[in-house]
Simulated assay, not measured.
Amino acid sequence: MRQVLLIVDVQSTFSPPEWLVDGLRWLSANIPTIASVELHDEQATPFQRQLGWHPAAEDESLVEADQVFVKHGYGQTVETLEYIKQLGVERVLVCGMQTETCVLAAGFALFDAGLTPTLVTDMTVGSSLDRSGKMGIDLWKHHFRQVTTSAEVLAALAM
């Protein structure tokens, strides 16, 4: 199956746990990988004005990727979606930070673009509201149905 890994916002700003960074490094070494990094631009997304906080203005992905896209807000950029479409993949494996916000927003953007988003449930962390990510995983299952684990992905690649 032709697939790509999309790592959402695994960057210093969001203090990802080391187990997530290590797991994603292992996974990304075995599959084509794209990463998004969320940077602050108050003109693009009013984080400070509306929420009283903002991501860093400069940051980078903590996991090496074949392509990294900068975004200013929750959703993925048009450029990211176009790049993924050009790859001609059958599914997009999604993982990363804030399962019920940025990761879920990536799922909606991918779905709306006609792609097949699949959540890698053991490679995602929820926001401060639910660090377990369970709420986001449940929302993902409700909206997109497609979920997998890193072990399942790696097992399928070994076949």
Rank of each mutant, 00 (worst) to 15 (best):
A151K: 09
W19R: 10
L62K: 00
S132R: 03
T33F: 02
V120R: 03
A35C: 08
V120Y: 02
S150W: 03
H72V: 03
A57E: 15
T121A: 09
L110V: 09
T124A: 06
A113L: 08
L24N: 02
T121I: 09
E38N: 15
D138E: 15
L24Q: 02
S12C: 06
Q43P: 10
L27W: 08
H72P: 04
L24W: 01
H143E: 11
F69C: 06
E152I: 07
A105F: 11
E60I: 04
I137D: 12
L93A: 04
Q11E: 00
V21L: 02
E79A: 11
A57M: 13
S15N: 11
I34P: 07
T99G: 04
H142C: 14
I34V: 15
L5K: 05
G126S: 06
S36E: 06
V89T: 08
E64T: 14
P46N: 09
G136D: 02
S127I: 00
A65W: 01
M123I: 05
A109H: 09
E18V: 08
P46K: 12
H40Q: 14
G114T: 08
T101R: 08
I31G: 10
G96A: 05
G107E: 03
T149Y: 08
V125L: 01
V89Q: 05
G73A: 05
G96T: 01
V21F: 01
F144R: 09
E152C: 10
L93K: 02
S15T: 07
W140Y: 09
M159N: 14
R2W: 09
T148N: 05
A113D: 14
F69D: 02
W53T: 11
H72R: 11
F47W: 14
T121F: 04
L24Y: 01
Q67D: 11
K141V: 12
E18T: 07
S150M: 04
T13R: 00
